[in-house]
Design a protein around this nucleic acid. Sequence first.
DNA 1: CACGTCGGTGTAAACGATTCCACAAGGAGG
DNA 2: CCTCCTTGTGGAATCGTTTACACCGACGTG
Lengths: 341, 341
Amino acid sequence: MASIKDVAAAAGVSVATVSRVLNDHPSVSAESRTRVMAAVAELGYRPNAVARSLRTDQTRTLGLVISDVLNPYFTELARSVEEEARALGYSVIIGNADERPELQDHHIRTLLDRRIDGLLVSPTDGGTPLMLDAVRAGTPMVFVDRWIPGVDVPVVRADGHRAVRELVAHLHRLGHRRLAIIAGPAATTTGSERVAAFRAALAEYGLALPDAYTGQGDFQADSGRRVTEGFLDLSEPPEVIFAADNLMALGALDAIRARGLRVPDDVALAAFDDIPWFVHTDPPITAIAQPTGALGRAAVRALVDRIEGRTPASVTLPARLVVRRSCGEPSLPSPTRRSEP
Amino acid sequence: MASIKDVAAAAGVSVATVSRVLNDHPSVSAESRTRVMAAVAELGYRPNAVARSLRTDQTRTLGLVISDVLNPYFTELARSVEEEARALGYSVIIGNADERPELQDHHIRTLLDRRIDGLLVSPTDGGTPLMLDAVRAGTPMVFVDRWIPGVDVPVVRADGHRAVRELVAHLHRLGHRRLAIIAGPAATTTGSERVAAFRAALAEYGLALPDAYTGQGDFQADSGRRVTEGFLDLSEPPEVIFAADNLMALGALDAIRARGLRVPDDVALAAFDDIPWFVHTDPPITAIAQPTGALGRAAVRALVDRIEGRTPASVTLPARLVVRRSCGEPSLPSPTRRSEP
DNA sequence: CACGTCGGTGTAAACGATTCCACAAGGAGG
DNA sequence: CCTCCTTGTGGAATCGTTTACACCGACGTG
């Protein structure tokens, strides 16, 4: 593969001049510039990013460590992250942690070894020593979706409190009183926050959230299935099951279907995270939608700010309720309530 | 960040010795080894992969350029690719082409600039000059899922012929005679092959595939919607719509639903690519399932073979039919036909 | 006419690793 | 006792860039 030396030789100039042309440095004559460009084109020369990174100490690459690529929410997040990064002249390397802290560490380690310029993380757990070390060492980092309390890193996330309250109002209006939740891992903020928001909203209606109605899931479909089976085995099963993410909702749907029960007639179902498929499930599923694209873009901008020396602030965007038929009411054109006719 | 020099100084040895310890070269005394290890631990030293790559001319990184990350099929493929690569000691950088040739080129270019060791591509089109150049220049490459005829690169893919024949048999048995297909872009092999297989299977039953019943899609949901509307506007609309991928099936479902028609009573629907959500759509969708995980793993093995000097062969794995309710028959325990009672 | 100034250029030193080569010390064998 | 290996080690070159520094001619100005 042709190197800068070959180009210099072909153009009859020094490597310094070639480099200057390539980085369009002002002081280089039009004459040299055209000669170099011609040589570049002729040799099909492309600068070696590895060598450049070594010299400049920057890779123009961002690392993104997410909890689960198979989760459509994270896929969409990854996509918007890549788009915004590309617009800003950065590449993105994605690491899939699969909700396993040791895999998350593996990716953080290799990303750090590659000297990525900054790291976007949606932590799987409460923060491994490795991650904490990276923060302490000054690696530009931004948390997205989930975060770790007490760690001084900007967070870009959606706030579901309001939407959860609307959801509970919607459910209450439909006459549901026994509401259960399939929670995410307590070690993740999204895991615990969603339960807290749900519990708080229930309290406003004088409803309790008994232990029997809070199942422990892990954001994967299987756990949704398992927890739902537990709920259905109860002597007094819940009227509504709220899954804290879309995959657990899928599992819940599986379990409900396997018992020959119907949604929403026998059990109502709602989910956190909205995805295109929820329109087409039987029945369409009421969900809380996060502004995923905006989240990804904001996270990248915050990280790039940090990398380029500015000091980004945390960003919180509101999630919103999307009412469909899985809780009992016929779908409305918008989640806004209309006055009774 | 600590470099090998710092470690050498701390351990009181030369950088050469440190390097030897790190790459566990045989001739280094136990004494030096322990001293170096201690220094490494104390400084929290991690080798700079950029510098190492520059020197050794290998990055232990694979590039994966896929057509659309939001397509669950490719997401799953990407996941299995990363897993197998990791097992073999490689990292993966994913580029999302979004079915756009220029974006595909962008990713190939940056991947090449980074001097990745090999490239896994699912080409969006018939092959841009850039990609062809890369092949000619000897970049280790393997095509996965889609490929480019006439280019000498190993291909890892699924063969759907048999499954498509089974699908047509299934449809014929249910009494359907007017079958339509939403094709993928003709420039992609999967786009044209699936139509060809469908047409051939129809011919076996003495059925034709008129032009009006072959709609041109682009593997994205919107095109499925558009083509389906066209089909439904026909004076004699098809009884079955077969979508060449899962996203177009989603679009088709949208369009059918928007007209107030029901599946399978008014129109039957089938799709290429099976995904977890197809179990839960209304109705569950009959699909042709690819061995996605096996495909990803085989592709990585082929590419690594090529990188490490061996000469891999192409791999073709069979796809299989998964019968559900979207074509009219109640779901069977298995796609195997049982003899009439 | 001498003297800065300035645009354009080349030489060479980094960046952080790997690895070839030389060399010293010590033991084996003549 | 001298030579020859073997083992462990360090010096230095190298990978492909960027960039500080020096230099050189031309030009405008006093």
